[in-house]
Design a protein around this nucleic acid. Sequence first.
DNA 1: TAGTTATTTATCATTTATGTTAATTAACAA
DNA 2: TTGTTAATTAACATAAATGATAAATAACTA
Lengths: 105, 105
Amino acid sequence: MTVLPQTFSALGNATRFAIVERLLSEGELPAGAFLDMNDTSPPAMSRHFKVLREAGIVEQRIDKQRRIYSVRPQAVQQICEWSISYRKFWETSLDRLALALAEDD
Amino acid sequence: MTVLPQTFSALGNATRFAIVERLLSEGELPAGAFLDMNDTSPPAMSRHFKVLREAGIVEQRIDKQRRIYSVRPQAVQQICEWSISYRKFWETSLDRLALALAEDD
DNA sequence: TAGTTATTTATCATTTATGTTAATTAACAA
DNA sequence: TTGTTAATTAACATAAATGATAAATAACTA
């Protein structure tokens, strides 16, 4: 069906997740902007970007000697749509839960 | 901040993702109901459930000698809220993209 | 009780992921 | 040209994930 497992797998690493969150908040940034992060030697960072690229989560734009990365909106949209497609399930489940808790008073 | 990377990591395996999708569609099921799946020896399946439990994605209910699993609605809700929190970004990005494509006609 | 069913835990082997250092590529700057 | 900056690729080591078989646990059934 979908490629969501690959998307989730790529986001299932704390460093990559932080990269994506930062790109989402700040917009496109060159790879080098992330070298201050926790783990990160340049090759490690480069590989994280490769994983994100191959999962279709980010895209690369080349500007001179810089690689500028940004989040592909479709990637986040796909995640949103997946979770929304089960909304009826989780919303009613949570409603029932809240109700049950309220009855304990 | 969040535990989302752990959630994503757990869902980033095709077998576990399939388990979760089936639980979401069919509702709670005993572990044994999944032994027809692709990989799956009973111990492999058991470990997949353990990963899902530890990530807070499923919960276990014991009925006699059966372990009945179900999806914790909060897990899906959390994913939904994360993607929604960046909705402005990805919706406007996609709008711009559609507009740019339309202009090519 | 003895055997069966459902599931998990223990051990071990193999694969995949991830980090490191060294070398490479490409563009810029003196 | 020579040196510097930005990023990647190559080669290697180590850790984590995942699967298999065997054994253990717990509850049901004859």
